[in-house]
């Protein structure tokens, strides 16, 4: 069953063109440059916006932060329980970002829902499709995804200039960290995630990229998978010079006996505009004195 007529009216500005045309995830496709903007989301579906949405619900905290940074906080109609930034805490919550309450989503009458794309949430997209609510799936696997989402949001929300500034600042921040540690020998490091055996960060991940920007060589960069559980002996065999974990992660004592364990703020595991700060924090830990 489709969405009620009153709600259809409010979302008339957004035309979901999924299936009709597939796009490259993160791409901005200006098919009709004079009458709006067309983007491809991370599922490959395309959405055309004839005017900026006014009632956005983002189920992805990093995207919510980006919208606030763009100055589009007033266009947010709701938030999730995952959100921690004070600017959105007064908004009504739709619950868990991966299993949002459909009742709460409907009552907010969103004209755009931004959701996690991937197997962690297989049901929200089809449920929104069934009600003709426009939705955009995003993934933040790589640093380039963060920048691409920001560019798309800038176009969609009619805030291209702000998005351009933020992307530039974000990239300059990361480049500055990279330059500061460029002449120092790379520290062979392993990024550990919770688990028994621990999970490690492998290739093609934003965490692996942050390690490299901060002057580390990811000892699992050749893993061939983004993340994987690896035995303790498998980790120790790689003989890293440092272990990196987010605050609050339990670390096996055998790792501490082998190499120093550096803790960084938990924000590093929320890919968004704060990655520059995370890279700086990590570089300071791995290369004392390299950054002010």
């Amino acid at each position: 069953m489709g969405l009620p007529l009153s709600l259809l009216g409010s979302v008339a500005a957004v035309v979901l063109a999924s299936c009709a045309q597939a796009g490259t995830p993160g791409e901005v496709i200006d098919v009709f440059p004079d009458s709006g903007v067309t983007v491809a989301d991370w599922s490959g579906s395309t959405l055309r916006f004839t005017e900026p949405p006014k009632r956005v619900v983002s189920l992805v905290p990093a995207v919510t932060s980006m919208l606030v940074s763009l100055g589009a906080g007033n266009d947010l109609a709701g938030r999730t329980d995952f959100d921690t930034i004070s600017a959105v805490l007064a908004l009504p919550s739709v619950g868990d970002g991966l299993r949002p309450s459909l009742e709460h989503l409907l009552i907010l009458e969103p004209d755009l829902v931004i959701r996690y794309e991937g197997p962690q949430d297989p049901s929200t997209g089809p449920a929104l499709d069934a009600r003709d609510i426009p939705h955009m799936g995003v993934r933040t696997d790589r640093i380039e995804d963060v920048a691409a989402i920001l560019v798309q949001l800038g176009r969609i929300m009619g805030r291209e200039a702000q998005a351009g500034e933020l992307v530039e600042r974000f990239e300059v921040e990361l480049e500055e960290v990279r330059q500061r540690v460029a002449k120092r020998p790379a520290v062979r490091a392993a990024y550990l995630l919770p688990g028994d055996p621990p999970w490690v960060v492998g290739s093609d991940t934003y965490l692996g990229e942050i390690l490299e920007i901060a002057g580390a060589e990811n000892v699992f960069g050749d893993l061939g998978r983004p993340y994987a559980p690896v035995s303790i002996e498998g980790i120790l065999m790689r003989a890293p010079d440092a272990f990196v974990v987010a605050e609050g992660t339990a670390v096996d004592e055998r790792f501490r006996a082998h190499a120093p364990v550096y803790q960084v703020s938990r924000g590093i595991e929320t890919p968004g505009l704060t990655l520059g700060t995370s890279a700086r924090e990590l570089a300071r830990a791995l290369h004392p004195g390299a950054l002010p």
Binding site: L98, G118, P119, Q120, D121, P122, Y227, A228
Partner: peptide, 13 residues
Amino acid sequence: ALSDAPAVRGAML
């Protein structure tokens, strides 16, 4: 063990 973190999260849910 062979899946990515998002798939593991989805499976758990």
